[in-house]
């Protein structure tokens, strides 16, 4: 689905990506992990050309993005959803309008928009919040809205840039469950950048380990499933002291 071939990217005097080759297969959940500054976010942003590589090829769904004119590139991006660590919702638009914007940009038939927006919001479990503004939502809810927005135009690919890195473990598990469901039921190819081991282990089929701008190794994984995070007082006490508390 996505072929990155011999890509390099330099920022001023710093080489962020060094001759990287990876291939993401259709229908898989592909992880990219590494320490801060390893170049994982840059690599993800190269996949929809938010960052333009200095050389190499980016092929998505059989089309070479690097060879496209601006208008063609915009069209190609409409079939690639993207979500971010800080959600990047439009704060002055309601939940409904945030999702609808994606359909406006894609010239989705007007009379079907409402139905499609609500369908996406139901998918992420937030249909009842359609009239709220992002400011009144929790982090997990904001990310769900961002997911609904990314899904609205029925993308083939979903790019996730640290999607759970500003969320607590419980919310992280919820978001991962949504992503896993999107992959399983809608067949969307997902690429996840994360520095969190559990995120990658729980849902990824393959992972590239990055270091210093290069892919160090790519490994096949057996998704472990999403951990059951139960934040009872006993859980915290056990984690903190190593003792199973029976007093509560």
């Amino acid at each position: 689905m996505i072929q990155i071939h011999d890509i390099s990217k330099r920022f001023a005097d710093y080489e962020a990506i060094k001759a990287v080759d990876i291939e993401v297969n259709e229908g898989e959940i592909y992880g990219i992990i590494g320490a801060s500054g390893a170049g994982k976010s840059t690599l993800l942003r190269l996949m929809n050309l938010l960052e333009v590589p200095d050389c190499g090829e980016v092929v998505v769904d059989g089309k070479n993005l690097m060879a496209m004119k601006p208008k063609q590139l915009r069209e190609a991006r409409k079939s690639m959803g993207m979500i971010f660590q800080h959600f990047n919702l439009v704060a002055n638009l309601t939940v409904y309008d945030n999702v609808e914007v994606c359909l406006q940009l894609a010239n989705y038939p007007k009379h079907q928009r409402r139905e499609r927006v609500m369908e996406c919001l139901r998918f992420v479990g937030l249909a009842h919040l359609e009239k709220q503004y992002p400011q009144s939502l929790s982090g997990g809810q904001k990310q769900r809205v961002a997911i609904a927005r990314a899904l609205a135009n029925e993308p083939k690919v979903l790019l996730c840039d640290e999607p759970t890195s500003s969320l607590d473990p419980h919310t992280t598990a919820e978001i991962l469950a949504v992503l896993e469901e999107i992959n399983r039921t809608l067949g969307v190819t997902i690429v996840i950048v994360s520095h969190e081991m559990e995120v990658i282990q729980s849902i990824c089929h393959r992972v590239s380990v990055m270091a210093d701008g290069s892919v160090y190794k790519t490994i096949d994984l057996e998704p472990q499933g999403i951990p059951d995070v139960d934040h009872t007082p006993e859980y915290f006490i056990e984690k903190l002291t190593g003792e199973v508390s029976g007093d509560a």
Binding site: N48, L50, K71, L73, R74, E75, A76, R77, K78, M80, G81, M82, F84, H86, F87, N88, L89, V90, V101, C102, Q104, L105, A106, A146, R149, N153, L159
Partner: peptide, 19 residues
Amino acid sequence: GVIEAAKAMGASVVEVVFK
């Protein structure tokens, strides 16, 4: 980030400005 998200959704410059 909002502008990034707009670009990622395939918005043109005019659309980024107005929407």
